[in-house]
């Protein structure tokens, strides 16, 4: 078994492109949080200078707007050119939002929600001034320090690096045996089928660790997102993620028997798991049906464990779930793939 792992790893190390891709893929993925995190929650809007100071101040201090104060005429030009997402003006008792003629209805929705939020705060100030009964909000967060969008996306991308690498690497090293017809040699050797397949899973896992380590380095050094949880527990969670997705990769590799569809399948499935499992936003924001689906998918727990260990929260239950699922996946995948190999007798 070890000799198979050694041979596969040697072959991998002899191909600099393969090693480079293992490193580059997580880095490419991490470009997303690196760039998306700079957007934050603020939308760039124009604020017309010729309006009451209280309204201008409320708009300019809103945490959800990046404001540029300009004249009414300049604001109209900026909107037409798409230099700002919208413009805020007021006439009499109306707070007027002009939406730029670009973007989709979600851009407009977000701008209108920002308008409503500023309006609510302005009206509370007016009610306080006139001593009229009113309601105010006093907020605090469940987590002591709220993760920025960049930190959230970075944790998701880090786990995705593990998911994708484990799945694609194991699927590739397994399918390659069939594609290059070397599987017959392996199956006629005295090594049990299960051990041959186990060595493929081990190879895929070991190959993935380099990419995950580079991704971790990028997250901590380049993005300055320092995990608040125990680093060893985070390492364990990522290892479990790689092994768990590698288990699926093993079955995929045996099933397809060709590297191209096996790796393509891995790309599609891992991207889907990243989206559905809460890698981009908490699953609470998803439609109810998708939340139900997400809760039965193993990657959701891996992504949750990564979030808790990087950004804070109760990590133990999801970490236990992730490691448990990974262990079970390895056993099931070995059993299923062994049965598949025995059934087809090494021919694909």
């Amino acid at each position: 078994m070890w000799s198979i792992v050694e041979a596969d790893l040697r072959l991998w190390l002899r191909m600099p492109q393969a090693v480079l891709v293992s490193v580059l893929v997580p880095l490419v993925v991490l470009i997303l949080p690196a760039l998306a995190g700079t957007v934050g929650t603020g939308y760039t809007v124009a604020v017309v200078d010729d309006q009451p100071a209280e309204i201008r101040a409320a708009l300019m201090t809103s945490p959800y707007l990046r404001t540029v104060v300009m004249s009414r005429a300049d604001a109209a030009v900026a909107i037409a050119r798409g230099e700002v997402a919208g413009a805020f003006d007021s006439v009499g008792s109306e707070l007027i939002l002009s939406v730029a003629p670009y973007g989709n209805d979600d851009v407009r929705r977000n701008l209108v929600m920002r308008q409503q939020a500023v309006l609510a705060e302005l009206n509370v100030a007016r009610l306080i001034e006139r001593d009229v009964p009113h309601v105010v909000l006093k907020e605090r967060g469940l987590l002591q320090s709220m993760p920025t969008d960049q930190a959230y996306l970075a944790a998701g991308a880090l786990v995705f690096a593990g998911l994708f690498s484990g799945l694609a690497n194991t699927a590739y090293v397994t399918a390659r045996e069939w594609e290059q017809r070397t599987i017959r040699g392996s199956l006629t050797s005295p090594v049990p089928v299960c051990a041959v397949l186990g060595s493929k899973l081990l190879t895929g896992t070991l190959q993935s660790l380099l990419g995950v380590a580079v991704a971790y380095g990028f997250v901590t050094l380049a993005l300055d997102v320092l995990p608040v949880g125990n680093p060893w527990l985070l390492a364990a969670a990522l290892l479990a993620t790689v092994a768990g997705s590698g288990s699926l990769g093993l079955v995929v590799g045996v099933r397809f028997g060709k590297t191209v569809p096996a790796v393509l399948f891995s790309v599609v499935v891992s991207l889907a798991a990243w989206f559905v499992g809460g890698g981009f936003a908490p699953i609470t924001l998803e439609p109810p049906e998708l939340q139900t689906l997400a809760r039965v998918l193993p990657p959701t727990y891996a992504l949750a464990a990564g979030q808790h260990l990087v950004n804070g929260g109760s990590a133990v239950p999801v970490l236990a779930a992730t490691t448990g699922i990974a262990a079970l996946s390895v056993i099931v995948a070995l059993a299923v793939s062994t049965t598949m190999v025995r059934r087809v007798g090494g021919a694909s």
Binding site: G40, R140, L142, Y152
Partner: peptide, 22 residues
């Protein structure tokens, strides 16, 4: 009179918290 609503948010991500707050 003036009433205060105490809110505890699930602030797992700035974007989610922003949506809830708005």
């Amino acid at each position: 009179g003036q009433s205060r609503v105490d809110v505890v948010t699930f602030n797992a991500m700035a974007d989610l918290e922003k949506n809830v707050r708005m």
